[in-house]
């Protein structure tokens, strides 16, 4: 397999949990905890998939997604958005901007695995 994923999440415990689950599934997992330079991190690491939290210190996940979608290299990158805010408008906003998948915290581990694998499959 050897698929790579970048987890952009500021909450260390959640980041660690996702890393553990995906690693065991055979993913190469990298983490990033800051919103400000998240886009640079994506460009540098060129992952196959990005898991993006909405509430990040320094910059909102929505802004980061917008910039990713605007870039030629990252425009078609699969992005799974995670948010602790369960309101419908958050989901609507994420879909409008171009999130590939949107999940509300708390999630089940199996759900996450199913989602990332669905996204990466052609």
């Amino acid at each position: 397999m050897g698929k790579s994923v970048l987890v952009i999440e500021d909450e260390p415990n959640i980041s660690e949990a996702i890393s553990f689950i995906l690693s065991r599934d055979g993913w190469h997992v990298a983490t990033h905890s800051n919103g400000v330079d998240a886009v640079e991190a994506v460009r540098a690491r060129r992952p196959d998939l990005v898991i993006l939290d909405v509430m990040l210190p320094g910059r909102s996940g929505y802004d980061i997604l917008r910039e990713l979608r605007a870039g030629p290299e990252t425009g078609g990158l699969p992005v799974l958005m995670l948010t602790a805010r369960g309101q419908p408008k958050d989901r609507a906003l994420a879909e409008e901007i171009g999130a590939s998948r949107f999940m509300t915290k708390p999630f089940s581990n199996a759900e996450v695995l199913e989602a990332v694998n669905a996204l990466i499959r052609p």
Binding site: E11, N13, I14, A17, I18, F20, I21, M55, A84, R85, G86, Q87, D90, T104, K105, P106, F107, S108, N109, A110
Partner: peptide
């Protein structure tokens, strides 16, 4: 605040659920 309180409650619950499942 509704979003915030949701966030504040869901964030620890996410960790708890994820690790308890692990």
């Amino acid at each position: 605040f509704l979003s915030q309180i949701s966030h504040e409650l869901r964030t620890p619950m996410t960790s708890i659920r994820a690790f308890s499942e692990i």
